[in-house]
Amino acid sequence: MKRKFPWFSYLVVIIGGISMIVPFLDMVFTSFKNQKELNSLKFSLLPEHYHFDHFITAFQELNMGRLFTNSILATLGVTVLVLLTSTLAGYALTKIRFKGQQTLFKFILATMMFPAFLFLIPNFYITVHFPLVGGNDLFGEGGNGGLATSVLALILPFSVSGFGIFLMRQFVMTIPDAVIEAARIDGASEFRVFWQLVIPMTLPAMATLAIFTFIGQWNELIWGLLIFTVNNNLATLPVGIQMLQSALDPDLTKALVSAAITISVIPVMILFIILQKYYVKGMQMSGVKE
């Protein structure tokens, strides 16, 4: 079918596209502006001169190195654990027959209906009063923060994902039973079947789950803010920047915050642009945004 050049569509999509990109440009350019420009009553998108000092100040004043380390440790920890637990469960739910399997699967599906905010309050208490860690006694008393004394507080409450289990189950299901039966008859233990057969065959699905979990966790804010109130050393990037707002001289804040934000956003964007294909797949399967 021959079509006219869709100039109207181009016009709308380009105008929309500009409004998608302008906030990012404003963010980047603001971080290069100096004090005089920021205080000026006249707005201009581009800075007169490019000043790099805000990026340096951000790294020093904000302790960005520390924030980065925390964010990376927490995000990698969660991603690795989610991959491990989801794949193990996905395999058990499809390729091993055991009593109560269907009930368990229904239970896991049901957990996905419970929204995260429902667990915010009790999990905060449980984390801080976790028994036998961070100086706590058997009843979770007497310590100075329980799990929140270490980065584990940012990892463990996210280490299993109902969505992750669901995704891996759907994928492991497509591996033919005959392949696994053959390995078992050859005398391979369940663990060997899992490591040497199932893991390599599920790598594409694991990539989807990994990138999806990574980006979601990198941007996590609310739980991080709560843990921060117990232990200031555990601030992640979003938490550190959020706290910076109130802590600094208001005149300085705008450029500094923009610089810090730019630093926090760029790595994920690069990751997303490279690994889009996998991320999008996860997105389409979950369809839900926080």
């Binding site: 990109i21 906030p23 934000i261």
Partner: peptide
Amino acid sequence: YFLPMVTNVVAVGNV
């Protein structure tokens, strides 16, 4: 159009 989805909410809100 998807870029804001991978941007953290602190960045979006402040900008």
